[in-house]
């Protein structure tokens, strides 16, 4: 697992490139182009760290703190599908831990969720790499649902009682709704710095 090239396309080469354009910037890439660019190799990590930073921003909307979209999850989903080898488990763990420490959450909670996201996502990666965006979005919806449920049960266990479930649902909905924006931005950046791949 973790080769930079995508799964072999089932369509003719012409349709394949069109399909690649429709998805967020994945297609075939030359090994040389990818390996030559050390900046591009850092891109997944940098964008994920930016997502962590955005998650912590104070926003003066009443109740925002409880509904902050899981930007880190969006970044991790994107990169685990398109460039899993550039965001290995060790980095996922460190980024998750960093977010927990900065946000005041129990240390290890976000790390666990990000790692489990990778565990769940990697075997099915090929279903999300080529198909058009709605499939990618649907996959993210499933992932977010599972992640939020896990986070909620974790806090129920830790606080020994039932924590607010409606807030979790709203948060999941908000995260899922904002995913297209994140995917678009990440796709553009990926295309710009990594070529058409």
């Amino acid at each position: 697992m973790g080769s930079p090239t995508g799964s072999p396309s089932r369509f003719s080469p012409l349709l394949a490139s069109a399909a690649a354009e429709r998805t967020m910037a994945f297609g075939s890439v030359s090994i040389r182009q990818y390996a030559d660019n050390p900046v591009a190799r850092l891109l997944p990590l940098v964008t994920t760290l930016l997502a962590v930073l955005i998650s912590i921003q104070p926003v003066a909307i009443p109740g925002y703190a409880a509904l902050t979209p899981a930007f880190t999850l969006m970044a991790v989903y994107h990169w685990t599908i398109y460039r899993p080898n550039l965001l290995p488990p060790a980095l996922l763990f460190l980024v998750g831990l960093l977010q927990d420490l900065l946000a005041g959450a129990p240390p290890g909670a976000t790390a666990l969720i990000l790692l489990l996201a990778r565990v769940g996502l990697l075997p099915y990666r090929r279903y999300f790499v080529d198909p058009p965006f709605p499939f990618v979005w649907a996959g993210f919806t499933l992932l977010t649902g599972g992640a939020m449920l896990l986070l909620w049960s974790l806090h129920c266990l830790l606080d020994r009682g039932f924590v607010d479930f409606r807030g979790t649902v709203f948060r999941a909905v908000l995260t899922i709704s904002l995913f297209p924006v994140a995917s678009f931005v990440l796709g553009r950046v990926q295309r710009a710095l990594m070529g058409t791949g």
Partner: peptide, 15 residues
């Protein structure tokens, strides 16, 4: 000045 906020429904603190 507040420079950070937790993104959780489960913790309420400010940095």
């Amino acid at each position: 000045r507040v420079i950070g906020n937790t993104g959780g429904a489960y913790v309420r603190n400010l940095m």
